[in-house]
């Protein structure tokens, strides 16, 4: 299931829901991304996140489908927030249920890496007196291409 929302999410509740969901689940891997104080700029106090409604959900569903072809995925959950976020706010949650840890880790990491370079989200960093659209990182592209 995929949700794009402006509000916060409860990672513990999402974990519990994943735990209750899939038959044959023996492992759950989760990832949560947070707003940090330094990115392209230093002294970041918050972020603004924009997305392309409709396309975003379609792209993420494609990533879950691709993960399910490569690994044993019993259930997958992706939440991504948009709008104005403050320091240490949760941005993104990816959770994957699988029979075994290897597939759970790999599918969770793949979905997260691929999301960063293919899902239409854009981050703007905000400091005391500046706003700056974040540039895509070579390191993110490289991580994503490692899965090709």
């Amino acid at each position: 299931m995929i949700t794009i929302q402006s509000g916060d999410f409860d990672a513990a509740a999402e974990y519990d829901a994943l735990r209750d969901s899939g038959a044959g689940t023996g492992a759950i891997a989760t990832f949560t991304g947070l707003v940090r104080d330094s990115g392209d700029l230093q002294g970041v106090t918050g972020l603004y996140l924009e997305h392309y409604p409709g396309m975003t959900e379609q792209v993420i569903q494609g990533l879950i489908d691709e993960a399910s072809k490569r690994w044993d995925v019993r259930e997958a959950r992706v939440i991504h927030r948009v709008g104005r976020l403050a320091l240490r706010d949760q941005i993104v949650f990816v959770g994957v249920c699988s029979a075994h840890r290897g597939d759970a880790f790999a599918a969770c990491e793949f979905i997260m890496d691929a999301l960063k370079t293919s899902a239409p989200f854009w981050k703007k960093e905000i400091t005391g007196d500046r706003e700056h659209w974040v540039e895509q990182k070579e390191s993110d592209l490289a991580r994503s291409q490692n899965w090709d």
Binding site: G33, L49, H51, Y52, M55, H80, I91, V92, M112, L115, K116, T117, S118, A119, P120, F121, W122, K123, W133, V134, E135, Q136
Partner: peptide, 10 residues
Amino acid sequence: LAFFPPVTGG
């Protein structure tokens, strides 16, 4: 048709 900068979510 949509045009946009390289994506930076996550």
